[in-house]
């Protein structure tokens, strides 16, 4: 097992290098650069920047150098000094900007994940055990309804209802009073009071798919001979269900944890924009639109790293819960 993990971690090094190169290449692909976008933004507000100032800016940001040199400066800074560069737009170090938002993003995504699983797994099991029953149809219908409603629409409706009928502002993750306040018990309470709205919206959207997957997995397992064996032993249906088919039906779901990690950054962007949530998604979007290349690059690199780490985590988890994989 230790050898397996070591091998996988070693493999991650060349993958990451290749991926970082690709990410840097991709953010340079759109025509123009940050200065072009910057000039265009200023022009829109009737400020004219002359060619010389633009050229000076390019010099200062190192945008005139060949691609490979820029890449080397960027990647060596990260590797040698842990320096992700400077965000052009925010005029701040990229690392500070990212870490500030990652904590809240992590909180939001994990709560959503937990809620989704807590709702979807029992319902999935129920609809499989009572296949084609009234409950199966009702839950399936509700779940598909949740899938079909765009999450930003649900967000808008919820916000509208909250403001008009409850007189409460549910956008953001903090009330204005706590926006910049240092952490305290009251701030945490405030956070929790706000958190449930986006979590519910996002969970409603993700539940349907998971219910269907769990239901299908369970239906596969329910008629396996080992279930009959367990029944012939005299186990009660409920204990039998939890111990054998549910255990095996969850295995494939564990591997999905892997690709949920990169979702930390890119997921929930639309809802976050609508509800002005201070998480990573909107910041990445903004960075991409402004061609703020070091900020965007750092995000892309982080996503790729998270993907690789997530896959590794999934594989380790799967090996832990499924002996067949461990011994293969």
């Amino acid at each position: 097992m230790a050898g397996f993990i070591l091998r996988r971690v070693l493999w991650m090094i060349p993958s990451l290098l290749a991926v970082s190169f690709l990410a840097f290449f991709l953010i340079q692909l759109p025509p123009g650069d940050y200065v072009t976008t910057y000039v265009a933004t200023l022009a829109a507000s009737n400020e004219i920047v002359d060619q010389r100032t633009a050229a000076e800016l390019r010099d200062r940001f190192g945008l005139n150098q060949p691609f490979i040199v820029q890449y080397w400066l960027w990647i060596s800074g990260i590797l040698l000094r842990g320096d992700f560069g400077l965000s052009f737009e925010w005029q701040q170090p990229v690392s500070g900007l990212i870490w500030e938002r990652m904590g809240l993003t992590l909180l939001l995504t994990t709560s959503t994940l937990l809620l989704t699983w807590a709702i979807a797994l029992p319902i999935g099991v129920l609809s499989a055990v009572r296949q084609y029953s009234f409950a199966d149809y009702v839950f399936t219908f509700i779940a598909f309804l949740g899938l079909a409603i765009p999450s930003f629409l649900l967000a808008l409706v919820l916000m509208y209802v909250a403001v008009v009928y409850l007189g409460q502002d549910v956008s953001g993750l903090f009330s204005e009073a706590y926006q910049t306040a240092p952490w305290s018990l009251a701030k945490v309470q405030d956070l929790l009071a706000h958190l449930w709205v986006p979590v519910t919206i996002l969970a409603v959207n993700g539940t349907a798919g998971l219910i269907r997957v769990m239901r299908a997995n369970m239906l596969d397992e329910l008629h396996r001979p080992y279930v009959v064996t367990a029944r012939a032993k005299g186990l009660s249906e409920f204990r039998l269900l939890l111990k054998y088919p549910v255990r095996l039906a969850i295995n494939p779901l564990v591997s999905t944890i892997g690709w949920m990690l990169p979702q930390l950054i890119s997921g929930a962007t639309i809802v976050a924009v609508v509800m002005s949530l201070p998480i990573a998604g909107p910041l990445l979007l903004q960075a991409l639109m402004a061609q703020d290349m070091y900020l965007a690059g750092a995000f892309l690199l982080l996503m790729c790293t998270l993907t690789l780490v997530g896959m590794l985590l999934s594989d380790i988890l799967l090996a832990l819960i499924d002996p067949r994989i461990r011994f293969d």
Binding site: P225, Y226, G234, L235, Y244, L248, P323
Partner: peptide, 24 residues
């Protein structure tokens, strides 16, 4: 009936691989 199963009357099956749980 659950008290009879496996206690008074026990059963073995054809396919010993699939009739036992692979993860226990």
């Amino acid at each position: 009936i659950r008290e009879l199963r496996g206690h008074d009357i026990a059963m073995i099956f054809q396919e010993p691989m699939s009739s036992l749980s692979p993860v226990h």
